[in-house]
Amino acid sequence: MTASVNGPLDRLPDGRRHLLRPAGTAPGSPMLATLSSRRDFDEEWIFERKLDGVRVLATRTEDELRLLSRGGKPLNATYPEIAEALAMQDRHDFTVDGELVALWRGRTDFARLQQRMGLTAPAAVRASRVRVTYYLFDLLRLDGYDTTRLPLRTRKRLLRDAFGFRPPLRFTPHRNHYDDSLLDQACADGWEGLIAKRADAPYVHRRSTDWLKLKCSGGQEFVIGGFTEPAGRRVGFGALLLGYYQDGRLHYAGKVGTGYDTATLRSLRRRLDGLERQRSPFADGEVRERAVHWVRPELVAQVAFTEWTTAGLLRHPRYLGLRDDKTAHEVVREQPAGRS
């Protein structure tokens, strides 16, 4: 293919031009990383900070700019400052991928981001004290061309050249070499971990082993299937009962009773009351708790934990917040790929 292009695409070497294709209208689903315990990497990988936020695709054509969640939910009303910053860019035809975060003392804070997630009323958004930042890390479309077949290094170079990065937009930097100290330092600095990406890989609209999650500690999403009554002076509820799907059935993963403030306990109880049902949604016989309220398995919670026990339950779980960018049936137990 001989492409007649403008701007940053003009600087593509001839050996890359044939990988461009006319772009379609829909951005597609985002590329997803695979959890891995691998720690041996050659020079064909790059390493980015694992950000603790929500995935956002941003797409613009001549007459429209849209922010979309991982599941395709529109987010312009929730994060108007991000939409405005992207609208002010010189480029008028693009799709970018990135992570939207709330920073607190130099670290991403998912609990803080929770205070912005779900707000859509302009007055409520303006009144919020939570400032958000959009870290861009990939380029899927530019000036009418689909760039997903280009190698990752090339896409990141185009991304950096095509956009101006001023708050609230940031370019996601990367390291080119790995050793154990890189992950150790990321964990010591309070990061979630690293994302290892194969530098010559194309962008695919699915989960792939070309992107690997290297985590500092356990943590993933779980489906809320019930809750216990509060004890003593506690309000709202005692603990959430968590699960994940396997072979179409919801399996119990344990309960989480820490990580809530009083406002969260009250507001979440109101939502749970509206989902209450008579029977357990979990696979038969897996839950031994008493005085349980069962709920329809619709809400998804982000939970940190230290490890899985041999009984298949969470050790030292801590609630971080609800996720509205993932559906319950997407939630499975994450299994790390091998170390080789």
Rank of each mutant, 00 (worst) to 15 (best):
H174S: 07
L9H: 13
Y178F: 15
E84N: 14
R234G: 11
L214V: 11
R339Y: 01
W308T: 03
M88S: 13
R206N: 14
L169M: 04
L240K: 03
G98I: 06
R198E: 05
L240C: 11
V235I: 01
A291Y: 03
K197G: 06
Y203L: 14
R234D: 08
K255M: 10
A311C: 02
G28A: 04
L182W: 13
D184S: 15
S4Q: 15
A3C: 15
R107V: 13
L103A: 03
A304K: 04
G72S: 15
Q335D: 06
G257H: 10
T264Y: 01
T95R: 08
L268R: 10
S4K: 12
L113D: 06
G219A: 03
R339I: 04
A231D: 03
A127F: 03
G193P: 12
F163R: 03
R21H: 04
D247C: 01
Y252G: 07
T108R: 03
V295R: 07
T228S: 10
H174I: 00
T61Q: 01
V132Q: 11
A58V: 15
E64C: 08
L136W: 02
D93A: 07
L68W: 04
D273E: 09
L212D: 07
D14M: 07
T327L: 00
S69H: 08
Y244K: 02
Y178R: 10
V287Y: 01
T209E: 13
L320F: 01
L140P: 09
Q185T: 15
D284Q: 12
R234W: 00
R206V: 01
L86I: 08
R323E: 00
E221A: 14
